[in-house]
Amino acid sequence: MRNTLAIAWKELRTYFVTPMAYVVISVFLLINGYFFAASVSGSFAEASIRGFLFPASFILLILTPLLTMRLLAEEQKMGTIELLLTAPLRDTEVIMGKFLSSLAIVGAMLALTLWYPVLLFWFGNPDPFPIITGYLGILLVGSAFISVGLFTSSLTSNQIAAAISSFGILLLLWLINAAPQFIKGIPPGIFDYISPSVHFRDFAYGVLDIKALVYYLSFSAIFLFSAIKSLEARRWR
């Protein structure tokens, strides 16, 4: 655990000594502010954060690949992976440390939007439950996205390639629930089940479904496990 935290801490520091964290967080807040303002000031304005949650999940889909692309690709490019893999660390500790560092950035981005609900409570009377589940949901979505990005970053020493491929995987999965419109013969429920966007809807409406919770946790676990195996495979090449 100490080793995992040491790696997470090191990565976090790198996020903040390079412009990466500042740029990603600023862009996220800027676009979200725009959508939130639109959702609470139009003629159909409602005292909920749904108007911010759905666009935010999509912005995360674009930004997390940029956040995670560096994590392992750069180590491979700079050769620093050689010292990381010859240190007395388990591969799991390396992957989990890097995962936690990105999750902390996503957590910080979301924490900075917490004044949206504060505003809602100040000027209106929102239902608190969808807000809580909404934040939980989007954090789970973020964790799923990070795990995919970490996996693609483990496959290559090229950051751009890592970012584009994780973006591709995420976008395809996000939109795959539309597939039944043109793919016949496969029960549409399957597409709904594998698409992360479908499970997110429940959270946004205040439904805490254990199935959705399990879905996101296993989604993250599968890709983190693949990243660990990919790192392990490096030792056997």
């Binding site: 080793n3 090191k10 520091r13 790198t14 700079m78 050769g79 620093t80 050689e82 010292l83």
Partner: peptide, 21 residues
Amino acid sequence: TVPLYTDMTVESYLDFHATIK
């Protein structure tokens, strides 16, 4: 090739390595 994390200071780098070791 002496691969080091070029964006860290000498001390924080050694601190990181001391911790993971």
